[in-house]
Design a protein around this nucleic acid. Structure first.
Lengths: 208, 208
DNA sequence: CCAAAATTAGACCGGTGGTCTAGACTGGTG
DNA sequence: CACCAGTCTAGACCACCGGTCTAATTTTGG
């Protein structure tokens, strides 16, 4: 976990480190990113870096968490999905997804970071960072799933973990494809609609 | 590409190298596997290794290709999917998938290898090996998709690349989940049925 | 039999993530 | 002021990585 000493740093130096790390991780992914380059770019020494962070994964987790928090702040919280009926559920989800993708195409470095995250997730040294980030994202997915089950928007004949695995995998691959497409902004809603339609067909309740 | 010199080696030494590499790659994935350990385990020198193979990715590709060939030999070729109707298409695919998964649970090292492949696919140094292997697997998927379109088993309102991305992503995630489940052999058919059902709902034609 | 070619051994290279020590700075106390 | 404990920094150092290279050895063929 990031050391408390880091928080005491002047804001500008925190920014310098964070920016250097973001640049490096976004450009090279987790594994191929070089801590030495980050250190040079940030203008600090190795000793200091390891005084602020446990290790490479810790730095990555910190950067990802910080940037993610910024994204969520920008996009807003996920609305309450459990209020209406199944159609509302899916339409709310689609809206939110669209907003997320819009924000991500506006922040390509963060998008690259998340892509790299998916790629690096299976890797022993990354496990600790993985666990930390998952504790923030998985409950999120669980809540959505629960809400979906409650309003009958999600099928009940498949074990929930399998549903989650399927949706996450599909989502990851599709995100990758969407980003690689560099779809124009006006095509995005149509594509998202297709995508959510596929997900809904796969995991949606009987009526859909 | 693997050098012709390798083929001239006594079969037992080829086996030793292949086995050492398989052990290492299956245990640690592509990135975290150590060529030095492979060399030690195989009892050859670095010079020889680089005399037989271009680089690490080349060795990986060779191992994967060889093991994969063994798997396909065991499971048999994919049957002709374009002969019957949509239901036949999906049922043939389900059968084949089930046989594949059975063979994979019987060969856990190969399963680990393929899992690691997916994880390492995005990585600059892996690109060459990736390209070589994809030229064998992608046409395979394309053919299946084409057959599916022909018999009306696959929806036509989604761009094919998006379909492929979705199915591959879903498949990858689900495979991972199935393996992690260590499902008993008698549960497997039921799970596969659920899985193929999800895929069919997502990408299947109107009637299904 | 010997030269040329094929093959092997392993030192070596620049790089990696991570550790460690020597010292610079700081604030508090006699 | 002097001293000192605690905090922080610089960068040498470590083991290891994938990959290169050269010198020696073995095999081949005329």
């Amino acid at each position: 976990m990031v050391r408390p000493q880091f928080a005491k740093l002047p804001a500008e130096q925190q920014q310098a480190i964070l920016q250097a790390a973001l640049n490096e991780f976004a450009a090279h992914g987790f594994h191929d990113a070089s801590l030495n380059r980050v250190i040079d770019a940030a203008g600090i020494s190795k000793g200091s870096m390891y005084y602020y962070f446990d290790d490479k994964a810790d730095l990555y987790a910190y950067v990802a968490r910080t940037e993610l928090a910024g994204l969520i702040e920008q996009v807003g919280m996920l609305p309450d999905l459990g209020a209406g009926d199944a159609d509302t559920f899916w339409s709310l989800l689609e809206d939110y997804y669209l907003r997320l993708m819009r924000a991500l195409t506006a922040a390509p470095q963060l998008a690259a970071l998340l892509r790299g995250w998916a790629a690096a997730a299976r890797s022993p040294e990354f496990q600790s960072a993985q666990a930390a980030l998952e504790q923030e994202s998985v409950p999120w997915v669980m809540l959505a799933l629960e809400a979906g089950l409650r309003v009958g928007a999600v099928r009940t004949d498949v074990p929930p973990p399998l549903l989650i695995a399927a949706v996450m995998g599909m989502g990851e691959a599709i995100d990758l494809w969407l980003v690689s497409q560099q779809a124009k902004d006006e095509e995005l809603p149509e594509l998202i609609k297709l995508v959510m339609g596929m997900i809904r067909r796969a995991v949606g309740g009987d009526g859909a």
